[in-house]
Amino acid sequence: MTAVSSPVREPAWSLPRSAIGLWLTESLISVLMMGVGLGIFLIWVPADSGGPVPVLRWLVPIAVALYAVVALAVRPWFKHRTYRWEVTGEVAYTRTGWLSQTWTLVPISRIQTVDVTRGLLQQMFGLATVAVFTASSQGTVRIWHLEHGMAQRVADDLAARAERTRDQAT
Results as ranks from 00 to 15, higher is better:
72 L>C: 11
46 P>A: 15
81 R>L: 10
71 A>G: 05
57 R>W: 03
79 K>V: 07
80 H>V: 08
50 G>N: 07
61 P>Y: 06
73 A>G: 14
55 V>Q: 06
66 L>V: 15
53 V>T: 08
67 Y>T: 01
43 I>L: 10
73 A>Q: 03
74 V>H: 06
57 R>I: 01
75 R>W: 08
69 V>Q: 08
50 G>R: 07
52 P>I: 15
77 W>K: 02
67 Y>K: 04
44 W>A: 13
78 F>W: 13
44 W>K: 10
75 R>K: 10
57 R>V: 02
75 R>E: 09
46 P>L: 11
47 A>Y: 05
46 P>F: 12
74 V>N: 04
46 P>C: 06
59 L>D: 06
43 I>A: 10
61 P>R: 05
65 A>R: 00
64 V>R: 06
81 R>H: 11
53 V>I: 06
57 R>G: 00
76 P>T: 08
79 K>N: 11
58 W>P: 02
69 V>R: 05
57 R>L: 12
74 V>F: 09
71 A>T: 03
78 F>A: 08
71 A>W: 02
60 V>S: 09
57 R>F: 01
55 V>G: 06
55 V>C: 01
57 R>S: 05
59 L>K: 04
71 A>H: 04
64 V>P: 00
79 K>H: 04
60 V>G: 00
70 V>F: 13
73 A>R: 04
56 L>V: 05
45 V>R: 05
80 H>N: 12
59 L>A: 15
46 P>H: 13
63 A>Y: 01
60 V>A: 03
67 Y>V: 03
82 T>K: 11
62 I>Y: 07
60 V>M: 09
70 V>Q: 09
81 R>E: 12
73 A>F: 13
52 P>Y: 12
50 G>P: 02
53 V>P: 00
71 A>C: 03
52 P>R: 03
76 P>I: 01
78 F>Q: 07
66 L>Y: 12
54 P>G: 04
69 V>F: 13
51 G>V: 05
62 I>H: 02
49 S>T: 13
52 P>E: 02
55 V>H: 03
71 A>S: 14
63 A>N: 01
73 A>P: 01
61 P>W: 07
68 A>G: 11
43 I>G: 00
56 L>R: 00
65 A>P: 02
49 S>V: 14
54 P>F: 06
58 W>T: 12
62 I>N: 01
45 V>A: 11
66 L>I: 15
62 I>W: 14
58 W>M: 03
72 L>D: 03
60 V>P: 00
63 A>W: 03
70 V>L: 10
55 V>S: 05
48 D>A: 11
43 I>E: 06
58 W>Q: 05
